[in-house]
Design a protein around this nucleic acid. Structure first.
Lengths: 102, 102
DNA sequence: TCCATGTGCAACTGTTCAGTTGCACATGAA
DNA sequence: TTCATGTGCAACTGAACAGTTGCACATGGA
C-alpha cells in the first residue's frame, strides 16, 4: 500500500483541503483565503497531497489550479476494506464454530 | 471525521500490526518477536491504535491480548468514499454538460 | 513600460513522534 | 518462596513536519 496516501490523509487540514477540492479545482492563493493559513502553508499541504497522487497541478496563465485525483483514495479504500473484511470473516468463522458445538 | 483514525493509519508499522491483528488477537510481546521492534515500541503503536478505537485490550492471566475493532475502519472508508464520490459526480455533470453543447 | 497579482524557493522555529533504554511491578509455575 | 515471564511507566534522543517570514521571479493588464 502506498504510504504517502495515508500520510497525506493524516492531517485534518489536508482532509479539509481535499473536501474543498472535491467541489472543483482552485488555486493555492484562493484556498489560503478561506483557510486560516498562509499561502505557503497551503502550498506545502498541496505538495504533500500531490506526492500521494491525490492532487494534480494545472497552469492557467499566471495561476496554478489544483485538481483532485480520486484514484489513490480508491486504493486506500480497497486496503481498508480488505483488512476489515479479513477480521469480519474470522469473526464469522468463530461464530459458526461455536454454534456447531453440542 | 475522527482524526485519530487517520493518524493511526499514517504509520506503515501500525498498518502492518493491524494486518496481523486482523488474523486474530495477540500480545504486544508476541508481536515484538515477529516485528523488528522493541516491545515498548509495539505497545506505543498499539496505544495509538487504541486511541483511535481500532484496537481493544483484554487481560488473560498475566498477558494482555490486543483485539482488532473494525468499526473505525468503516467510518474512515465512509469518509473516503463520500469525498471521492463528490468529485466523480462533478466530473459526470461536467461531462453531460459538454455533451449537451451543439 | 510600470505595477499589481500570483507563484517559487529557502531558512528558521517549535512541536510532535518513533524508537530506545532502564527499572519497577505483577503473575503463574515449580 | 523463588524465579522466569509479561507488563507498565518514565526519560531521553533524533528526525520529521507544520507553519511562518522574507525575498526573488513571472505574468497579465493599463
Amino acid at each position: 500500500m502506498n504510504n504517502a496516501v495515508f500520510v497525506a490523509l493524516a492531517d485534518p487540514t489536508r482532509r479539509q483541503l481535499l473536501e474543498r477540492l472535491a467541489m472543483g479545482p482552485t488555486t493555492a492563493t484562493g484556498l489560503s483565503v478561506r483557510f486560516p493559513l498562509t499561502r505557503q502553508a497551503v502550498v506545502k499541504h498541496l505538495g504533500t497531497l500531490a506526492d500521494a497522487g491525490m492532487v494534480a497541478k494545472e497552469r492557467h496563465g499566471r495561476e496554478v489550479r489544483y485538481r483532485m485525483e480520486s484514484a489513490p483514495i480508491g486504493e486506500a479504500t480497497a486496503w481498508l476494506t480488505t483488512v476489515a473484511a479479513r477480521w469480519e470473516q474470522r469473526l464469522l468463522r468463530l461464530k459458526s464454530y461455536v454454534e456447531e458445538q453440542p
